[in-house]
Design a protein around this nucleic acid. Structure first.
Lengths: 230, 230
DNA sequence: ATTACTATTTTGCGAGTAG
DNA sequence: TCTACTCGCAAAATAGTAA
């Protein structure tokens, strides 16, 4: 989904809806309200919502009493993308986005996921290396959560999901990163914003980052997300 | 200028130009380049630049050899506005934007400007009070410069400029603020981003803030810009 | 009240091409 | 090569109105 393929009206509508909390919950709204706010006709507002719904950018339930609208995760992602492009536009000299966080121990879930053979194979082909069979959990500092959101707006490396006998495995979104002090390439897996504890980042690399950098729980690390200016 | 009156194409173009440093300097570009990048026809790219130029959003000098384009301050302001709207969309629970800075002594220029009778009169009518005849200079901390840029994206109170015998006086842009610890209303004058030392904010209020809060040079103050959710 | 269909008008794109 | 005109067609807007 390219944000520039949306019309200005659709983007404005999305922003308006998000400002009214439609990213978190279903909100009540009427097409007339939207029409008045944007100084367009009620019909256009209706058609616009219809289209956003078809594109899976919002979910929309309409009735003769009004409408219930909520942004999908794709809808939120469009706003993230726009924010990312805008950040590069307003700071054209920026060469990377910085993150600081502290190392902590998870419950080995990362290890479980990363070592699924189907994922492993895609990591190898998409990132160019076979990752170490575990992840380094980093809790991003409060001052850097915005930066995490910014990175979410960039185009990720997509590790495709798959179906297993027990359950389906989702696509995994990776972002190429650099850990200060470490030579090896690193990729970060950023959970969706909606998750509880969305300030967590899981790092994968060819090597065991924790061992090489001699990290203990609570140690701070600095991470950079490179910005490639076309 | 309402950002929602621009087409998606115009906004994308503006972002693209800014990413290529057109906010700081004239950049060389051809309409064919733009056409290829956005997968549109060369004619549409040409028309689009023409329109942005007419709207004073960019300056554009075209010749049979190519084009020179640069964003005007209005062009940059549109990006700021978009950023501001996006910020509210991505953080709908935010009730204010915080600034921290340190007090310093200027050379009395603020005092000179504020006390022009024509300005004084507009301050009274637009802000509802006659400001103290001096400004409090605040140097905004590095971590808060982004927040300053955000505030720039909001709709300011505009104190109209005027012509005097000696020289013209520009419009003054004010933003309603709150200084923590002070009851009285405060307004901030934020210089244009292009100025050297754009991390400076001049506060005006009915009272002498420095005296009431007993501020010395170097003291830190905390400022809030309230966000009104429509 | 709503949403949303149909008809009509307006806007805007791209192709061809001149300067 | 560039920019930028005219023209024909397609997309999208509004108005009227039905459900």
């Amino acid at each position: 989904m390219d944000i520039f393929s949306l019309s200005s009206r659709e983007i404005s509508l999305l922003i308006y809806l998000a400002q009214n909390r439609a990213a978190e919950k279903e909100i009540e709204i009427t097409t007339t309200q939207l029409a008045n706010f944007f100084k367009i006709s009620q019909q256009t507002a209706s058609r616009c919502l219809l289209k956003l719904n078809e594109m899976r950018i919002v979910t929309w339930k309409s009735s003769p009493k009004g409408s219930l609208v909520m942004l999908t995760s794709q809808g939120t992602h469009i706003l993230d993308q726009l924010r990312f492009e805008l950040e590069k536009a307003l700071h054209p000299d920026l060469t990377f986005i910085e993150l600081k966080g502290t190392v902590f121990s998870g419950r080995g879930e990362g290890k479980y996921y990363v070592s699924r053979p189907a994922y492993m194979k895609s990591f190898q082909s998409q990132l160019g290396y076979k990752p170490y069979h575990g992840t380094l959990n980093v809790r991003i500092g409060n001052n850097y959560i915005d930066h995490l959101d910014l990175i979410r707006g960039s185009w990720p490396v997509i590790i495709p999901g798959f179906e297993s006998e027990e359950r389906p495995f989702d696509d995994v979104l990776c972002y190429p990163l650099k850990v200060i002090g470490l030579e090896d390439k690193v990729a970060g897996i950023i959970p969706r914003r909606t998750h509880y504890g969305a300030n967590v980042l899981e790092l994968i690399s060819k090597v065991c980052i924790r061992d090489i950098l001699n990290l203990a729980d609570g140690d701070e690390i600095v991470i950079e997300f490179p910005l490639t200016h076309d």
